[in-house]
Design a protein around this nucleic acid. Sequence first.
DNA 1: CGGATGTTTCGGGCCGGGCCGAAATGTCGG
DNA 2: CCGACATTTCGGCCCGGCCCGAAACATCCG
Lengths: 229, 229
Amino acid sequence: MRHGPDITRIAALIGEPARANMLQALMGGQALSAGELAVEGGVSPATTSGHLRQMAEAGLIVPRQQGRHRYYTLAGPEIAQVLETLIGLAEAQGHRRTRPGPRDAALRRARVCYDHLAGAVGVQVFQSMTGRGFLHLSGDTVAPTDAGVVFLDGLGVDLAPLRAGRRPLCRICLDWSERRNHLAGALGAALFDRMQGQGWLRRAQGSRVVDVTSAGAAALARFFPEAGR
Amino acid sequence: MRHGPDITRIAALIGEPARANMLQALMGGQALSAGELAVEGGVSPATTSGHLRQMAEAGLIVPRQQGRHRYYTLAGPEIAQVLETLIGLAEAQGHRRTRPGPRDAALRRARVCYDHLAGAVGVQVFQSMTGRGFLHLSGDTVAPTDAGVVFLDGLGVDLAPLRAGRRPLCRICLDWSERRNHLAGALGAALFDRMQGQGWLRRAQGSRVVDVTSAGAAALARFFPEAGR
DNA sequence: CGGATGTTTCGGGCCGGGCCGAAATGTCGG
DNA sequence: CCGACATTTCGGCCCGGCCCGAAACATCCG
């Protein structure tokens, strides 16, 4: 018997098709009801209930009662992070469920990673911001520079409430499809939120895919140009 | 049924006690024979053989025949990365196998992460190097600065052969016990190697623990002082 | 070549846990 | 208060897969 944290329980929970499907459905960041998750998992409500209880007990998901529905969300960004990492590895090993379809390409281009933007567009945003000196990386802290604060303000993102929260302002998250970093943390979420509010991005129904509107494409090219590397 | 990579297979492989133990044993970076892994997993050689075949087929481990032994290693740093991430989550959720023992503290201080240094000491090295301007982070690339090249040369680490290899020179790896970054990639491995060669660090037998010698403690304090943040 | 050691294959036992239907519980709306 | 809908609990089925011992290979050594 070895010491240290017990990874078996969590991995076993993820390593079961019905549960894995439910978790991946929750990667969209939205809360889903037990019934919806039953559909995602492809099993009966009765079976689903058992699965949800287990995952909640293990701290992977969190229930919120609302009327006669019970909604579940991922317990936090760390969980999404682990799932992303696993997806990345599975991707690298070539374990694919189906042949890559049209939806797959859309997913690589832009998708939701729990509550922030991932995919080629997410990486572009991060690259542009660091390249133009709006984000500064040092050690393992990432933070907006003074110029970055002005830039974000121009986009309509106010940092004050974000700094007040308990959640880290900036985090970096490794993108499985691009294998490069994108921005997570409170700022990542706020930025994504703002981009949706501006009508640049629109979430596709029932999937992690994010569509870039034509206005969004123009805005992205203007505000987040390729930084000359 | 959902699209995208199939994470179930990998997670299921990890989510089984015998296999998880074997994988964690391999996190030390050393190759272990089937027999040794049987002991680690706590199952018979016959059972072990089946497990090893499955994990090899899934691309988690790689066999190397050597005489009448068959040695296995993790298939690559990405695998170690996934395991580290899972360990980190399990740690955060408080899923611990045993009460933290003396060995646990040693593990947090310094340990092997596949082929490079992790734990408090690993984080210290990384922090010191970035803080003193020896490593530069920009976007998601990490690279030694000119001053860093000189510094590393002074330590006896020659970068030329490392750059020639196919493996990325620098990578950052999130440390589960410190929750901060440490240095991985070819340079991380070479640095760890050099530190062992200099007698600063010594690997404990049969575990991931790394002991810091008294000479090592002095050298670390001199070459990798806390960078004033 | 023959015996010792390491590893894999085969056959079969067994238990955990996923699955469902039916019934119980809970919640809302009229 | 009752019926519709969402979810959970209960009981029982059943299959996958973990496990081992024995035997078959494979490799090394004397």
